[in-house]
């Protein structure tokens, strides 16, 4: 067995609120192998988004450790090295806040290429065009204002921007929950293609069992900050061992197919 590219050991994350400390993640262990797609499912408030943010270093662990590519993850508020950026990147849930509204797609991706690959301006733009093309953004759309892009197009731009760093891991936090069903499906296909073509490990967070089933090799089921079950996707879905997983699976009619919930799109 190969060395895991992500190792999370006994992770605890707590948020300080005016009403006292609220634990979001309460002792979680997780491993991800290189090139593997791992799904994390759970209802909203189960701590899965917090876990995703802890893996990339956007939130600090209270205790426990997150090791990514052999090194402990560094909090993003410090200076991140090129190696850190080339290790793990993230796709966010809300397409309307994950792109800088003042940048056109080409500028956003070219900037990432310029910083991460140390290419000059012209080469960065050329490479950015290539990347944007590979995620299905047309030449005309590259130069459009971000404001006029749809949610699905924005998520594609986000993916291209993340790929500019040539990361070994992509953490996707509910990237399709704000999208229409058909658009969500094509985005999932894109993620799957990227995963197989580039051999990237993907951590895919979702409340949507159908989506996770379609994408993930292995799956973790999260509830109230802890994993209640994990295993190979098919096993977990076909023969859930935990009570909670059973309710989840039974509450989704035909969890085997891609069923996107009609989530209200986030406000602009």
């Amino acid at each position: 067995m190969t060395e895991p590219i992500i190792t999370v050991a006994d992770l605890h994350v707590t948020f300080a609120t005016p009403r006292g400390d609220v634990p979001a993640v309460r002792g979680v262990d997780l491993v991800v192998a290189p090139g593997e797609t791992v799904g994390i499912v759970g209802e909203s408030g189960s701590g899965k988004s917090t876990l995703a943010r802890a893996i990339v270093g956007l939130v600090d662990a209270q205790s426990g450790s997150v090791t990514v590519d052999g090194r402990p993850v560094r909090p993003v508020h410090g200076r991140r090295s090129r190696a850190d950026a080339a290790t793990v990147q993230m796709i966010f849930q809300d397409p309307y806040s994950s792109l800088n509204p003042r940048q056109r797609p080409i500028d956003a991706v070219a900037e990432a290429v310029h910083v991460c690959q140390r290419l000059d301006r012209k080469a960065s733009r050329a490479r950015a065009m290539e990347l944007l093309g590979s995620v299905g953004i047309s030449q005309a759309q590259c130069r459009m204002k971000t404001r006029s892009l749809s949610g699905g197009q924005r998520q594609r731009v986000s993916i291209a921007r993340a790929l500019a760093a040539e990361p070994k891991i992509l953490v996707a936090d509910e990237p399709t929950s704000a999208l229409d069903q058909s658009i969500a499906a094509s985005l999932l296909n894109l993620l799957r293609r990227i995963q197989s073509e580039r051999g990237i490990a993907v951590v895919f967070i979702s409340h949507d069992l159908g989506v996770v089933r379609y994408l993930a090799h292995r799956v973790y089921v999260m509830k109230e900050g802890v994993f209640v079950e994990d295993g190979v996707t098919v096993d977990v879905f076909e023969a859930p061992r935990h009570e909670y997983t059973r309710t989840l699976v039974s509450s989704v009619p035909g969890a085997g197919t891609t069923v996107a919930h009609g989530h209200a799109p986030a406000q602009e």
Binding site: L58, H77, L99, Q103
Partner: peptide, 29 residues
């Protein structure tokens, strides 16, 4: 706190780049 700023940090952009190119223009408007 916006995700595009988080994305910029994850990409390893320096503090001044995050500030000048991503935070400031949006505050300015």
């Amino acid at each position: 706190d916006a995700d595009f700023v988080n994305a910029a940090r994850l990409l390893g952009y320096g503090r001044s780049r995050v500030m000048i190119r991503h935070v400031f223009p949006n505050v300015y408007s």
